[in-house]
Design a protein around this nucleic acid. Structure first.
Ligand SMILES: [Mn+2]
Ligand SMILES: [Mn+2]
Ligand SMILES: [Zn+2]
Ligand SMILES: [Zn+2]
Lengths: 143, 143
DNA sequence: GTTAAAGTGAATTCCACTTTCAATTGGAGC
DNA sequence: GCTCCAATTGAAAGTGGAATTCACTTTAAC
């Protein structure tokens, strides 16, 4: 899986005439072995621990590249920080965000997805993407 | 309805020991007779046309007050601008956002709402609020 | 090895608010 | 009215995350 993502990014780099650099390798490796829903700043700080020579701008630009390559997706959960999550080929999910501890859970519900399409279709609206986030208190924080 | 909102705000102002000012009156009037989902900048520019003496900071602060008073709600649809929509007592709706013309339609679907509660409950998660936005092409832009 | 193009990162700029502060104003109490 | 003072205003400065600049470095194709 990490291998597959690396292959996708390598192909993307090649196909776009971009270059393979050690910074990109390091950032990709770190991203792939990190928690989901990481902010630029978080990944940057995580990298700084081992590689003091990687700049914020490079992390920023590289994450954008990951998104363009289709291995990452930009997200924003209302805290003013852009987050990047891992993309799993052909998989979609929405989020449950805990307003107490900040944890983010994922869920899938095909019935909801279908109803969205239905609602849109009734108005002649064609959905390209959507965003469904449930904010509240997670099980852990409730007990 | 405009009258009712004005009453709510007047009461809010009184109850909080704030003052009634002509700027607030003008801004409220303009907000109530404006399109839904207006950004601070948009309302500010609209006001400038007739009242060159109203500052951006005042519009900004007054909209925050409207939100606190419960007659407006803050929204953000991914364009980096905070928008304020009119609140209708006891009513909830979600949004269809056109990525071509920027228009914003509203919809309600109780089945989706119920399913959200269901999904959350299954994980011991208690929903406080949610956000459902469908992005795509509106009927007008498709034809 | 040469070289042109791409990449890097510290520093700077952008931008959408958000706060500060000196001057002004609303309105309660006389 | 008139006074007094807390609330309000708005120009300007500040904030923070994102985006860009620019003077080098690296890469990778000859
Ligand atoms: Mn996710
Ligand atoms: Mn709305
Ligand atoms: Zn929690
Ligand atoms: Zn449209």
């Amino acid at each position: 899986m990490k291998r597959a993502k690396k292959k996708i990014f390598a192909d993307f780099i090649a196909q776009r005439g971009l270059k393979s650099t050690k910074q990109r390798d390091i950032i990709l490796d770190s991203f792939l072995s990190s928690d989901r829903h990481l902010s630029i700043e978080e990944l940057y700080l995580k990298l700084r621990a081992k590689h003091s020579n990687i700049g914020y701008a490079t992390v920023y630009r590289t994450l954008k590249l990951f998104a363009e390559a289709g291995i990452a997706r930009e997200m924003e959960f209302g805290d003013g920080q852009t987050r990047y999550e891992h993309v799993v080929e052909g998989e979609h999910h929405d989020h449950l965000v805990c307003t107490r501890c900040g944890s983010i859970e994922e869920f899938e519900n095909q019935t909801i997805e279908d109803l969205q399409t239905q609602v849109a279709a009734d108005r002649g609206f064609l959905i390209e993407r959507h965003r469904l986030e449930l904010y509240g208190v997670c099980g852990k924080c409730r007990s």
